[in-house]
Computed example of a mutant assay.
Amino acid sequence: MVRTPLTPEERERGEQLGRLLREARGGRSMTDVAAAAGISAETLRKIETGRAPTPAFFTVAALARTLGLSMDDLVERCALLLA
C-alpha cells in the first residue's frame, strides 16, 4: 500500500503536536514518559521531533493521559494552524 504524501499543513500540525508534548513533558525523561504511556522512547522521540507527524489516536491519547493533557486542548491547539 502506498501512502499519500502529507500536505505541508499536516506536517506543521504534527510538528506542533510534538512541541506541545515536549513542552508538557518538561523535565521528565523521554524514557519515563514513554514507558508510562506504553510506547517506546523512539516512538516518542519521532513524535516530538515531527518525524512521525500522524501518530495513532491511541498513542496520542496515552501520551495525553500520561502528561495530564486534555485531548480537547491538543485538538484545539493543533487545529489553530489551519485557520
Rank of each mutant, 00 (worst) to 15 (best):
E12R: 15
A52N: 15
E15D: 12
L20N: 05
R13Y: 07
A56P: 02
I47P: 00
A34E: 12
A83E: 15
A41D: 13
L74K: 03
L6W: 10
E23M: 12
D32A: 15
V60S: 00
P53W: 01
R13K: 12
L74T: 04
F57T: 10
E15A: 13
P55I: 02
D32Y: 05
A41Q: 14
L67C: 09
T7C: 09
R11L: 15
E10V: 03
R19S: 14
L67H: 07
L80D: 11
V33P: 01
L80S: 11
R11E: 15
Q16H: 09
E9N: 11
A62K: 06
F58R: 04
R25S: 05
E23V: 12
L80W: 05
A34D: 06
I47A: 09
E48C: 01
A56L: 11
L81C: 07
E76I: 08
D73Y: 12
S70E: 11
L69K: 08
A64W: 01
T49H: 10
G18C: 03
V33M: 06
T49P: 07
R28S: 14
E10K: 08
E12Q: 14
G26K: 00
L81Y: 09
L81F: 04
L80E: 13
A34T: 09
G68P: 11
T4P: 11
S70V: 05
T31Y: 14
L82A: 13
R25I: 02
L21R: 00
M71D: 06
R3G: 04
T54D: 15
R19W: 01
G14Y: 00
E12T: 08
M1E: 14
R22D: 06
A24L: 02
D72G: 09
E9P: 08
A52Q: 15
L69Y: 05
G50Y: 01
S40I: 07
T49Q: 10
A52V: 03
T43D: 06
A62Q: 08
V2F: 13
L44D: 04
A62T: 02
L81S: 07
R51V: 02
G38M: 09
E23T: 09
L17S: 02
K46C: 08
R65D: 13
T66F: 02
R22Q: 07
L17C: 13
R51K: 13
G14H: 00
D32E: 15
P5V: 01
L17R: 00
A37D: 07
E9S: 14
M71S: 10
A83V: 10
A79S: 14
P53Y: 03
L67W: 01
T54N: 15
L69E: 10
E76G: 06
